[in-house]
């Protein structure tokens, strides 16, 4: 049915043209309980990550990796001196937790950005070019998609020894793009049929121009949505690797903390040590997931529609 929407809001200056859609999206986002919880949790984690630099400045013994409390030789419970207790070497668990938040953001966001970048560009290329390029790229995507990421990283690290945290990030990115690229390709295929793309062609625009001006702005929101889900999976993979003992020994991640708990046999003796990183991993993945779900609602065109019926 033909619907004529007619609104008469004040005009927004050109350079801030995105503010209108953004405010509209924000008002939908605000209605979502999931989104609000997710965002609150994320802000807490972000504050934790930002604060991770403070403890070592107060006292070198609070350095998460190298700082050792000289008075302590074994794992102790929470005290005023160590809010969450210490690990087996006398390192402060609270400062490790803060450092872990920083690593989680780093790993999650950078792996997600890389895999989304790969997935989006490959998906757009495949969808726009079509024919054999499409077939080739999508078969490649299928091949990678069926490989279990965790297993491949395990094999790689047993071949090459301990992997650096950035290597792990790159590997996660390389293995997590196919899902995104499939979705972006589908979106591109449908956009290619829309007559604004044909209008651009008739106007003489080049393929690159069409991709940049017409395809990309319309797939980017979807790509951002998938980024939140990819962050979740990247954090989980990194934690699993670290817990299994294939993490970067030079960084303090929550997975690493869990591995220390387990390796030193404190699994059932030191809940103050086991629970915080475990809970943090669950909560941060949950919060990104909830954020994604809320963004899904923001991007859902059915919810954007102004009037029904009439």
């Amino acid at each position: 049915m033909k619907v004529d929407t007619f609104q008469s809001e004040a005009d927004i200056p050109r350079r801030f043209g995105w503010i209108g859609p953004f405010l509209e999206g924000w008002s939908i986002f605000k209605q979502s309980l999931l989104g609000k919880i997710g965002l609150t949790l994320l802000i807490i984690f972000a504050v934790m990550a930002l604060c991770s630099f403070i403890p070592p400045l107060i006292n070198p013994m609070y350095n998460p990796m190298t700082g050792v409390d000289p008075e302590i030789t074994h794992s102790t419970g929470p005290s005023w001196r160590h809010w969450l207790g210490t690990d087996f070497m006398g390192r402060d668990i609270f400062s490790q937790l803060l450092a872990g938040a920083r690593v989680a953001f780093m790993v999650g966001v950078s792996a997600a950005v890389m895999s989304i970048f790969l997935g989006t560009s490959i998906g757009m290329t495949a969808g726009y070019m079509g024919s054999f390029v499409d077939t080739l790229l999508m078969r490649l995507a299928d091949m990678i998609m069926v490989m279990p990421t965790l297993l491949v990283v395990l094999i790689l690290s047993s071949v090459f020894g301990q992997l650096n945290i950035w290597t792990i990030v790159v590997i996660i990115a390389l293995f997590r793009w196919p899902g995104v690229s499939r979705i972006i390709r589908g979106q591109t295929l449908s956009l290619k049929q829309r007559s604004f793309v044909e209008a651009a062609k008739v106007a003489g625009a080049s393929h690159l121009g069409i991709i940049i001006r017409h395809i990309m702005p319309n797939v980017l929101p979807l790509a951002f949505l998938f980024m939140t889900f990819r962050v979740t999976s990247a954090i989980i993979i990194e934690a699993a690797l670290a817990f299994l003992g294939f993490g970067d020994p030079g960084t303090v991640s929550w997975g690493m903390m869990l591995q220390w708990v387990w390796k030193t046999g404190h699994m059932f003796q030191a809940p103050y040590w086991l629970l915080p990183p475990g809970i943090c991993i669950s909560l941060i993945t949950l919060s990104f997931y909830m954020l994604g779900r809320a963004m899904d609602e923001v991007l859902d065109p059915r919810l954007r529609k102004e009037d029904q019926g009439a």
């Binding site: 043209g17 007559s195 604004f196 044909e198 209008a199 008739v202 001006r213 017409h214 702005p217």
Partner: peptide
């Protein structure tokens, strides 16, 4: 040579002013 398309809901890119 230019063309005007049938459906104005499809022929304008929603992301462009």
């Amino acid at each position: 040579v230019q063309m005007i398309f049938q459906d104005p809901y499809q022929s304008l890119n929603p992301q462009r002013s």
